[in-house]
Computed example of a mutant assay.
Amino acid sequence: MKPRHPVLRRLWRITLWVFPLAVLALLAKAARTIDWPQVMATIAGYDATTLVAAVLMTSVSYLVYSGYDLAARRYAHHALSTRRVMLIAATAYAFALNIGALVGGTGLRFRMYSHAGLGVAAISRVIVFSTSTNWLGYLLLAGALFASGSVVPPPRFASGSSGLQIAGVVMLAAALLYLFACHRLHGRLFHVRGHHFRLPSVPLALVQFALATVNWSLMAGIIFVLLPAPADYPTVLGACLLAAVATALAHVPAGLGVLEAVFVAAFAQRIAPTQVLAALLAYRAVYFLAPLLLAVIAYLLLESRGKTVAAPARPR
């Protein structure tokens, strides 16, 4: 939430620029100690089976993510075709991962839906629903994982395992509170900055949780496949979830270096940093860069079609 006082607002803007730059500077300094030829040699040593598995899981993940916007279609009551909705969602996702959620996930999604004929109100509901879906799944999955105590944080983690378990319980409580609110307040209209929103029904909220937990699990699964044998899936999933929050706080595009720092710390006692970095670079190539190239083509295709007439709204 942005501060209202002019001086505080100025300090907030400065922080938003300085903090990411400081993080990048520290990461650049750390990168000088890495044996990059060994990292490249590890990447070159991946077998075809491993890479095919990573590509297939990436494809499934993008399909699952497209389900966010399909569920949002039901919530927003618009009638765009399934094919168009999935193409917009997958394109926005690829851009969001690489250039940030604000521009990729929100800005481009707004433009593409606008060109498809949807109005501002419907697009706002789609964006809010899809964004909340992603983080609701995070709350449920991270909450269950952290509360179970199956994730051991890096040695330098300030609050240790007990702090992580407490955070997990709070996350689970927040997820359950959302379901309770959907049950009790489903018919109530909320006004936010000139837009009107309702909480989804409980069945639709359960769809949100299911889609997002599967997607987060798939993202961790891709990294798990690319890491060497000593890696275990719960630790990979925990590191992936922790890195997501660290990336959001650091405001570094694509979480560049932040993801790597979290994983290197998580596996410091078991896997060589060069192997961890090789797995994450391969992950970025498969999950970030390759889909981005396809997303650019899809975006240009959608732009070339021009703006269409708005699809009739579905009955509520």
Results as ranks from 00 to 15, higher is better:
residue 87 L to A: 12
residue 59 S to I: 03
residue 172 L to S: 03
residue 185 L to Q: 08
residue 235 T to H: 00
residue 182 C to T: 01
residue 257 G to C: 10
residue 194 G to S: 00
residue 37 P to N: 05
residue 103 V to L: 15
residue 256 L to V: 08
residue 269 Q to C: 14
residue 88 I to R: 05
residue 159 S to Q: 14
residue 6 P to A: 11
residue 68 Y to H: 12
residue 189 L to G: 11
residue 253 P to Q: 02
residue 67 G to C: 05
residue 77 H to F: 12
residue 253 P to E: 03
residue 301 L to V: 01
residue 207 V to R: 05
residue 231 A to K: 02
residue 49 T to C: 10
residue 6 P to T: 09
residue 85 V to P: 03
residue 50 T to L: 13
residue 301 L to D: 03
residue 166 I to G: 03
residue 257 G to R: 09
residue 168 G to H: 01
residue 199 L to E: 02
residue 99 I to W: 13
residue 172 L to D: 00
residue 5 H to P: 12
residue 34 I to V: 09
residue 139 L to P: 01
residue 187 G to M: 04
residue 308 T to G: 08
residue 89 A to Y: 07
residue 242 L to D: 07
residue 304 S to I: 09
residue 160 G to V: 11
residue 68 Y to F: 12
residue 74 R to V: 09
residue 201 S to K: 01
residue 170 V to W: 14
residue 34 I to N: 01
residue 196 H to A: 09
residue 104 G to W: 13
residue 306 G to T: 07
residue 227 L to N: 02
residue 100 G to C: 05
residue 290 A to Y: 04
residue 70 L to D: 01
residue 10 R to A: 15
residue 310 A to T: 14
residue 299 Y to F: 09
residue 263 F to I: 04
residue 258 V to L: 12
residue 197 F to M: 03
residue 84 R to D: 08
residue 237 L to Y: 02
residue 91 T to F: 11
residue 240 C to P: 00
residue 117 G to Y: 15
residue 105 G to H: 13
residue 123 I to A: 06
residue 102 L to S: 15
residue 260 E to G: 10
residue 255 G to L: 14
residue 3 P to E: 08
residue 257 G to H: 08
residue 94 A to Y: 11
residue 196 H to I: 01
residue 293 L to S: 13
residue 72 A to T: 06
residue 23 V to K: 14
residue 125 R to L: 13
residue 281 L to T: 08
residue 215 N to V: 09
residue 182 C to N: 02
residue 60 V to G: 04
residue 99 I to A: 12
residue 75 Y to Q: 08
residue 130 S to C: 04
residue 264 V to P: 06
residue 231 A to N: 07
residue 116 A to Q: 11
residue 101 A to R: 10
residue 250 A to W: 15
residue 134 N to H: 06
residue 14 I to F: 13
residue 316 R to T: 13
residue 162 S to W: 12
residue 303 E to S: 05
residue 64 V to Y: 06
residue 106 T to F: 15
residue 270 R to E: 15
residue 12 W to L: 14
residue 300 L to S: 00
residue 152 V to G: 03
residue 234 P to Q: 03
residue 233 Y to C: 00
residue 287 Y to N: 14
residue 239 A to L: 04
residue 299 Y to E: 10
residue 109 R to W: 11
residue 43 I to H: 01
residue 47 D to V: 15
residue 83 R to Q: 09
residue 226 L to V: 08
residue 202 V to A: 01
residue 299 Y to V: 03
residue 48 A to W: 07
residue 168 G to P: 06
residue 102 L to C: 14
residue 177 L to G: 04
residue 36 W to G: 12
residue 125 R to G: 10
residue 149 G to L: 08
residue 167 A to K: 07
residue 280 L to K: 12
residue 31 A to V: 10
residue 264 V to M: 10
residue 128 V to K: 05
residue 288 F to N: 02
residue 195 H to L: 00
residue 114 S to W: 09
residue 286 V to S: 06
residue 69 D to Y: 02
residue 72 A to S: 07
residue 193 R to N: 01
residue 145 L to S: 06
residue 81 S to T: 15
residue 184 R to C: 10
residue 257 G to W: 13
residue 231 A to W: 00
residue 50 T to S: 14
residue 288 F to I: 06
residue 58 T to V: 04
